[in-house]
Design a binder for these strands. Sequence first.
DNA 1: GTATTGCCCACCTGAACGGTAGGGATAATT
DNA 2: AATTATCCCTACCGTTCAGGTGGGCAATAC
Lengths: 145, 145
Amino acid sequence: MTFVMLTQRSRYALRALIFLARAPGIAPVPMSAIAGDQKLPRKFLEIILTDLKHGGLVTSYRGKLGGYRLARSAATISFGEVIRLIEGPLALVPCVSQTAYQRCPDCFEESVCAIRKLMLSVRDKTAQILDGTSLADIDPVRVAA
Amino acid sequence: MTFVMLTQRSRYALRALIFLARAPGIAPVPMSAIAGDQKLPRKFLEIILTDLKHGGLVTSYRGKLGGYRLARSAATISFGEVIRLIEGPLALVPCVSQTAYQRCPDCFEESVCAIRKLMLSVRDKTAQILDGTSLADIDPVRVAA
DNA sequence: GTATTGCCCACCTGAACGGTAGGGATAATT
DNA sequence: AATTATCCCTACCGTTCAGGTGGGCAATAC
């Protein structure tokens, strides 16, 4: 009985990003500060932040006084973008993914596939919600995951 | 880069069930017929059908002329029920699952968690679509996955 | 030069997914 | 009673991935 769920990675990524979005001032926030406040495993967070950096969501600064900052304004970073970056496509089946379309290997005729039709509507609704909400849209209260 | 996607199990399960829903007459359909028509690996399908049986979606008949039939009318079997049975909860985070709620271990205060709020709306939309569509609701054409 | 930071590479454990193999129990047919 | 076609049960297996951990090198501020 597996769960169709977000990985810890994604949750940690979101929490880290939300924390960065809330950070006052312009100084980079050291990784250890993020890990400490959000109670994330430091070394694991390191991997995640690297992904976020490669994905263009955060910028890093090395050396003393180094750390991480959002690469763009919080309003331009949607939950959808984060999840897609860490997790992969939002689609439940490859044939309805916008970003990573792939035909099902044993599909007879995609245009009439009932499963596809349904999953397409699920994907659309999901994307609508996740892409329509940014890091700036959330309430200014303590956040967890 | 993993995909947030349905497993083959679920897709096979849906295809098998749709096939059973379309089967004419009342005679049980042998597993080999399902596997043959839908091109599913027979032994793997066996496992899946067992799950569906334990979940009360199909009934099995042993011996010669044995096979499988839907346990209830197609209209009462929703996609949501099938996916939940095979895959697990529809929720993207455990704390928004209706059927398998679980508090996030490191959550500060669930009621104000921004991630939770968002995932809750995703879950609701998804459930609305998947629970609102039954095996009887699909078009009478050749189906794949 | 020293302290603090990020960066990179290697490794580990447990669990899953997607199967496969082989035999035993049941029931209809002859 | 034998045959045949079906489901049922247990075991196994290879690959991948999630979720980490550990150690050391590189850069920067002071």
